[in-house]
Design a binder for these strands. Structure first.
Length: 450
RNA sequence: GUAGUCAUAGCUCAGUUGGUUAGAGCAUCGGUUUGUGGUACCGAGGGUCGUGGGUUCGAGCCCCAUUGAUUACCCCA
């Protein structure tokens, strides 16, 4: 007899964990709604043609593929195919890798119905066939918000406000919002005259946090850059306050190219739209982000008092819907990683202690006739918004009270022969141990007053 | 794909240089108390020591293989 198990990198969420997860999800959802975002849900699985090629070669490797249904090997002659060319013949669907590509797919399919700028939020699980480790799962939830159909930097500014509101409401105050601009990175790589290596270089400098400046330099030189070129790249990597003086200094160091102009223009506009309110915001030259489709401002939120990767990220993508045939739609989106936010809040003990009980009142029935007496009373309490349950057996009172303790229920109403005869219920506070008799008719009023 | 660590009761873990019948806490169930819990006391059930092979008079412990978990790298939330 083997013990049951779940696939690696997946988790069960029991009631206590769900209460906390819902707390995070509800907080994020309310903030999204307060900025006018509308909900969207898309299927867990997408056609592989929708998913492949959107996340780079590495990302394609991480797609979970779903075998076709039925006798999918019937017409396959195994001599003709190797393991790679066989895959597209037996698998046409895959689990979604993120929520952004499904959004693009949805917008293209429904372009006549959506009103631009289209602001949607989406909170659903995504799957990656990754090696799990701390803070990394194979099934995890993303909480995205995106705006499609406008180039306005107001969106970037809104998202920075959203970050501040969400983390402030969650009580998570030790964090940094890091911003950068994809075209700023491109301009620097142009200046060093190594544009052919742009992608590899972004991956290297993204690791600056972890491997340090020397580590970055070593990897750049290993890539084939000379000392001057790597120095140019390194000069950009410092993290600094997001203000006009620093922006100007960067501008002087950049070449006079289209990329540089666009990046500086965007960042200056964003600074103005934030009206100098840049608390928590840092300009981080080493922020690159892996996803291929980003083309403008990129954002990331990192907790500062806990060793954890980014807990949110996002950025602007100029032409995501273009791959599905709808050109000229610019978008920007962010995504909260609630699994990591949960881990951080758990580590910092930030979850509120109250609100963890799922039931307020437990009816304890001493004999069968007490059920008929209790059920209408319980219904009345429920109609008044009091979370009420009736213990379903006439077990020993000890056992019923044990149940109440295990579920952190504050009030027990004990219903037995004497109580029913006199219409006086024994009401016990399980925290203080105090018990009193209360008139049957006064019960609802009593709990309403609490 | 690469490397390290680990695997003993439902859970968290002890288990001495290899030595008799593998232990504890928590949880569960029963009792002290037939209607009063969260504190106390007594008791019970629960194990192919991940799996397979090897060394040995003898293996939870040593060796090999395998599976799984976990951490780090790559990449990413």
């Amino acid at each position: 007899m083997s013990k049951p198990s779940i696939p690696r990198g997946t988790r069960d969420f029991g009631p206590k964990i769900m209460a906390k997860r819902k707390y995070i999800l509800n907080t994020i959802e309310k903030v999204y709604q307060s900025f006018g975002f509308m909900p969207l849900e898309t299927p867990s699985m997408e056609n592989l043609s929708t998913l492949t090629g959107k996340y780079g070669a590495e990302g394609d490797q991480l797609l979970f593929k779903i075998l076709n249904s039925g006798d999918y090997l019937k017409d396959i002659n195994s001599d003709k195919f190797d393991s790679k060319s066989l895959t597209p013949l037996i698998s046409e669907k895959g689990l979604r890798y993120d929520l952004t590509v499904p959004l693009a797919r949805y917008v293209v399919m429904n372009q006549n119905e959506v009103t631009f700028p289209f602001k949607r939020y989406q909170m659903q699980p995504v799957w990656r066939a990754d090696r799990p480790q701390k803070g990394r799962y194979r099934e995890f939830w993303q909480c995205d918000a995106d705006v499609l159909g406008t180039n306005s930097l107001l969106c970037e500014a809104d998202f920075i406000k959203i970050y501040r509101q969400v983390f402030s409401k969650l009580g998570l105050n030790d964090f940094e919002i890091r911003i950068n601009h994809r075209k700023l990175l491109e301009a620097v790589v142009e200046k060093a005259d190594v544009s052919v290596h742009f992608k590899t270089i972004t991956i290297i400098i993204d690791k600056a946090d972890k491997i340090g400046m020397d580590g970055v330099k070593n990897e750049l030189i290993a890539l084939g850059l000379n000392d001057v070129q790597s120095t140019i790249i390194l000069s950009l990597l410092n993290k600094q306050a997001f203000n006009a003086a620093n922006l100007e200094a960067i501008q002087h160091a950049l070449p006079d190219t289209e990329n540089a102009k666009k990046a500086m223009s965007d960042l200056n506009q964003l600074l103005n739209l934030l009206d100098q309110k840049t608390d928590f915001v840092y300009l981080d030259g080493s922020l690159a982000r892996g996803l291929d489709y980003y083309t403008g401002c990129i954002l990331e939120v990192v907790p500062t008092s806990v060793q954890m990767g980014s807990i949110s990220g996002g950025g602007r993508y100029d032409d995501l819907t273009g791959i599905f045939g709808l050109k000229g739609i610019s978008g920007i989106g962010i995504s909260f990683g609630i699994d990591r936010i949960y881990d951080v809040m758990e580590e910092l003990n930030l979850f509120p202690t109250d609100g963890t009980n799922f039931t307020d009142v437990l009816f304890c029935c001493m004999d069968e006739s007490a059920f008929a007496y209790s059920l209408p009373l319980a219904d009345e309490l429920r109609l008044n918004g009091i979370k009420t349950e009736v213990y379903p057996d006439t077990s020993k009172l000890k056992k019923q009270l044990d149940y109440a303790n295990a579920k952190n229920i504050l009030w027990a109403v004990i219903v037995g022969e004497n109580e029913m005869k006199n219409n006086q219920l024994a009401l016990k506070n399980l925290l203080t141990g105090e018990q009193e008799l209360i008139d049957k008719m006064a019960l609802t009023v009593f709990f309403q007053k609490l």
